[in-house]
Nucleic acid binder design. Structure first.
Lengths: 153, 153
DNA sequence: ACTAAGTAATGCGATATCGAACCAAATGGA
DNA sequence: TCCATTTGGTTCGATATCGCATTACTTAGT
């Protein structure tokens, strides 16, 4: 970003950082999606994965917030997952406006095979940065992510 | 990613890294787009920005490759930019199949005001990580990005 | 209890994204 | 030169994404 106009240099650095992050996100998304079954995109996998990480039974709104996407986008993604039988939606016993998202066996199976399918690609680039470097990267990025997360009020 | 199935630990680390990158990408994209004029999305800005960084006169295909998006997506983005008068498309004198994308004054003005609009947000988070940390992050991420870029043959 | 404000989810319409098929021009052998 | 192949770009159709408006339920204040 060498010819950004007259902005503060810290600003310019962050600008460049986000640019790099955006490109990497696109590259990794393409890599992932190439291994997913036809018709499924990254958010489908990501939601399933999240439900396993933090327990299923989440509400659609909780999921939308976790991924910072509009509620309508999450509705759409969940509809796709439900249509394929990877999740089931049940009424939330604590709040009749709300629903809960539960994983099915098919959903868990899908996740495992998706991870298995992607693992070789990741393993193939494991020598690019060593474990300490990757660990350090994750930690720094997480700091930034939490800050931005908090900043959105 | 503490409960990823039985995958190699390096794989797991990269998995976590890309997860973090994806979230940050989404957060920063939302931040950017909130400051862009109605109807414009990040790729519009990114293409204009790229044309300034590496000189305009690029062909649509060169741009599609630079951003790792399908040709059709770039056609669509360029159509939007042309409709708004930010770029003009001319025939490529070296190849009659091809076109060249040139910035207009309006396009340059748009870029400057977009950057000016976003700068305060970036400045506001400049104290999260110091310049050396950001610089180091960019460098590591760039190594990974180049590797992935090369790997897609 | 009643009402106003807030919250969860969806329906709808406008774009964005992208794969498949297509056309036209360029290229590289026979 | 001719033709098969490759390359640059668009068209078309299928989803994805997301803002706006709507409906149903909940909560808070009186």
């Amino acid at each position: 970003m060498p010819d950004t106009p007259d902005t503060h240099s810290a600003t310019r650095l962050y600008f460049e950082l986000f640019n790099e992050i955006g490109i990497l996100s696109q590259l990794s998304r393409a890599l992932f999606e190439a291994r997913l079954p036809e018709g499924l995109v990254l958010p489908h996998f990501t939601v399933i994965n999240h439900l396993i990480r933090v327990q299923d039974g989440r509400t659609p709104l909780q999921l939308a917030r976790a991924f910072q996407v509009p509620k309508t986008s999450m509705t759409h993604t969940l509809a796709g997952l439900e249509k394929r039988g990877f999740v089931t939606m049940r009424a939330n016993p604590d709040d009749a406006r709300s629903k809960q998202v539960w994983l099915t066996d098919a959903g868990r199976t899908f996740r495992n095979s998706a991870i298995a399918g992607i693992a070789p690609d990741l393993a193939g680039m494991a020598d690019t940065l060593d474990s300490e470097e990757v660990r350090a990267l994750i930690d720094k990025l997480a700091i930034l992510r939490k800050r931005m997360d908090a900043a959105r009020d």
